[in-house]
Structures are given as C-alpha cells and as structure tokens.
Design a protein around this nucleic acid. Structure first.
Lengths: 114, 114
DNA sequence: ATTTGTAGTTACCCATTGGTAACCAGAATA
DNA sequence: TATTCTGGTTACCAATGGGTAACTACAAAT
C-alpha cells in the first residue's frame, strides 16, 4: 500500500505523505490516541478494516516509528500497540483536521440565497 | 479512488479522511498553494501523476469544495484552478505536517548510542 | 480429550486501479 | 492545407489490492 516513489522522493513533504497519506493510517492513529491497545481491540474498533490490512498498516506505522509494538511472550499471544512520541506528535494535526472539517464541511452544500 | 464507506460515515473525522486522505490530494493542494494554475501546469509539476488520475483528483477536489475551476470559453481550451476558501484553510495543516516531518523523520534512523 | 482464545500468516481469487495511447474540437499559425 | 495547441475523455489491458477462509502454536479451562 505504501508507494515507494513517495517514500524515496527527495521532497520531504512527499515522503511525509508517503508515510501517513492514506485512509487507514490517520484513522488508526486517531483511534489509538494516548491509549495502549491490543490487536483484537483495534480490529474490533476500526470500522470495516480487515485483519490483513490492519496487520499491514500497523507494521508500516511501526517501521515509520509512529507506534511501538510490545509482544508479551505468552500463549495465547498478547500484543500491545501504543503511539510513540512521533505518533503522539501527530495527534494535534488530526485535531486541526477535525476543526477544519467542522468549519467547512457543510458550508458547501446550501447555496439557497444568491 | 474515493471510498464511499468513508464519505458516508456518520463520523465527521472519517468523512474528512475520505475527502483528503489519499496521497494525491495533499500533494496537489500543496503545489497549488495560493496560485492559480492551469491543467497543463499541474500535470507538468505534480511528479508521476497521469492525466487520468489528475483529472479525477481535481474533479473530486472541486466536488468537495476545495478548489474552484474556471473554464474560459476559448479554443484551444484554457482552464484555471485555484483553491477555494476551504482549500486555502487546509494549507496551514500541510505546514504542520511539514514541521512534524522535519522534526521526527530522521530521529528514527540513527540509534548509535545505547 | 476437546474446545477456546490470540495474533497473525498464507493461499486463492475476484474486483478495482491505473497506465497508455488514441481521439476530440476548432482556432490560430505556418 | 497541414500542424499545433489545450484539456480533457475513452477503451483497452496488465497489475495490484484486498477480502475471505483456513491454518498455526500452545496453554488453560471444561
């Protein structure tokens, strides 16, 4: 799902978009917030995502240093995911997006008055 | 390319991600900035994008009220794209992403000292 | 002895994506 | 007369994406 062209670009902004510019990553980061979550919890809470894609996205987020994966050596397995400092630092950006959306989403629809 | 599941979600954040959560939209918005640009310019400047995909993305951005399309009735055709107020309001978010990336991108790589 | 629970992984296969190239209109230019 | 110029659109086709279901390991509980 990650685009190598983006991730290897010499433009830092393009690389950043290569890292977080898809639909699942912001959703996952937002769902996690400051919590520590297990794989099954994420699978249950993130709507419509399949285990396959969730696995893939979590792996990429870990590779990119946005989250930390802590696997307990137990059976049945237990794995905890939590946002790293880098991931936590991304949360305010998501808040900005929420505010932006709140302010402008509906504003496009009416157009009653001329 | 737009995911209807996201755009019709009852969660506003999910809808917002449905709108701008892909790799091309942030790139296009960032390239445009406050400028007015023609289709051919965008095609030339946005790296690796095909005309087909560029057309599709511009159409979606227009539908979502992020940009305005002004077609002059001339031949050969001339079309100018510029960000709307909603689109312009998204620029600061892209700046935050740049700052975030600048601060954290490399910080994951070294790990020389223990 | 069998079932349950977790965090994945793998194989299979259908649907979607996206690249490429050809094509369009019609005015201006050579 | 033929070519060029622009902003797309369309058809075709190969590649990719992603859903589903089955499977794993092993401990604990029934």
């Amino acid at each position: 799902m990650r685009d190598d062209r983006f991730c290897n670009s010499n433009c830092p902004f393009t690389r950043a978009i290569g890292t977080i510019g898809n639909k699942w990553k912001p959703i996952i980061i937002n769902v996690m917030g400051t919590r520590s979550m297990r794989f099954g919890q994420l699978d249950a809470i993130v709507p419509h995502i399949s285990r396959k894609v969730l696995t893939e996205q979590l792996k990429e987020l870990e590779e990119d240093g946005l989250l930390e994966r802590l696997a307990y050596k137990e059976l049945p397995p237990r794995v905890e995911y939590r946002l790293s400092e880098k991931g936590l630092a991304f949360l305010p950006i998501l808040e900005h997006i929420k505010e932006w959306n709140l302010k402008y989403e509906v504003a496009t629809i009416p157009k009653e008055t001329d």
